[in-house]
Write a protein that binds this DNA or RNA. Structure first.
Length: 283
DNA sequence: ATGGGGGCCTGCCGGC
DNA sequence: TGCCGGCAGGCCCCCA
């Protein structure tokens, strides 16, 4: 269920135990997640050094010293857990293997990284390092919402004339990549825009305002994830899931947090997915 | 090209 | 206690 901030938090949590470290053994417990794993994936990972961990949209990219890059997508229920390492005074022991532990990396030095994904909407694949422009999983992704290419002129242009609801447009990873259901709801609340409003019908000024609101919402969530990483010495080593207070997401029936607003947060369904918003503040 | 809906999986929670 | 419907933070694919 991870959106960009959760994926970035996972990446930051994994980096200290993966970057510069050799994968002593990759254990692959089934042939596929959402798609079949690439041929001989375990062999292509075992013995390779992870040079760098990067992120593109909701993908974690691990550049290997074999000129291949491992792509990891967490889907809806994918989780990464680190064990066998020490943070400060706290040692994370290896847990007993769990149902849905599909891929396990034993790192040189004793750390273990476990990928668990009950619903199996996640994915792993290998591409040639540097192949972002061609690789099928990521070639059509729009700009990073925190990057320079995502600016007001760009978004105004992309939404111009679009008849789709703004909710759907912001979820469309080809327009901007990294937002999911939660943060789109939060952004639209801050922008005062009703999720069902047609994208092309919103004034350029209001569309432009979405750019900085997207940046704010994602940056704040990444920051919250960063502080959660600091204390996870008492947690179970699972990365990326942190308590977060949302203004509207999953707040159906609760009072709108806007001062002086008396309305309650409403839930509607758009293309099969819940949208939460304030019917007073969002038009 | 664009917009909408179905489907993929499993787990959990609330209601009866 | 058990069963059932509804729901879940993603995204590809197909259809009109």
């Amino acid at each position: 269920m991870p959106e960009l901030p959760e994926v970035e938090t996972v990446r930051r949590g994994l980096a200290p135990v993966m970057e510069g470290v050799v994968i002593a053994q990759a254990q692959v417990n089934r042939p596929d997640l959402r798609w079949p794993f690439p041929e001989s994936m375990a062999e292509r990972l075992t013995g390779k050094r992870v040079l760098r961990l990067r992120r593109r949209s909701k993908y974690i990219l691990a550049d290997l010293d074999s000129d291949e890059t491992l792509l990891i997508h967490l889907g809806m229920s994918g989780r990464m857990t680190i064990s066998g390492h020490t943070v400060g005074e706290f040692h994370h022991p290896h847990p007993v293997p769990a149902k849905h532990d599909h891929v396990v990396f034993e790192m040189d030095g004793g750390a273990r990284i476990t990928f668990n994904d009950a619903r199996r909407f996640g994915a792993m694949d290998l591409m040639p390092t540097g192949g972002e422009a061609d690789f099928w999983l990521i070639r059509d992704l729009g700009p990073e919402p925190l990057g320079n290419q995502f600016d007001e002129a760009y978004l105004v242009d992309r939404l111009k004339g679009r008849n789709t609801p703004i909710k759907s447009a912001l979820l469309d990873q080809r327009i901007v990549s990294g937002l999911g259901n939660i943060y789109v709801c939060e952004v639209l609340y801050r922008a005062g825009i009703h999720p069902a409003r047609k994208a092309g019908q919103i004034s350029a000024k209001r569309v432009a305002s979405l750019v900085s609101l997207v940046r704010d919402v994602l940056s704040e969530a990444i920051e919250a994830g960063g502080s959660s990483l600091k204390d996870y010495r008492q947690a179970d080593g699972e990365l990326g899931y942190f308590q977060h207070q949302f203004s509207v997401y999953d707040q159906e029936g609760k009072p709108c947090p806007t001062p002086l607003c008396e309305k309650k947060i409403t839930r509607i369904v758009q293309s099969g997915r819940s949208s939460f918003f304030c019917p007073q503040c969002q038009r």
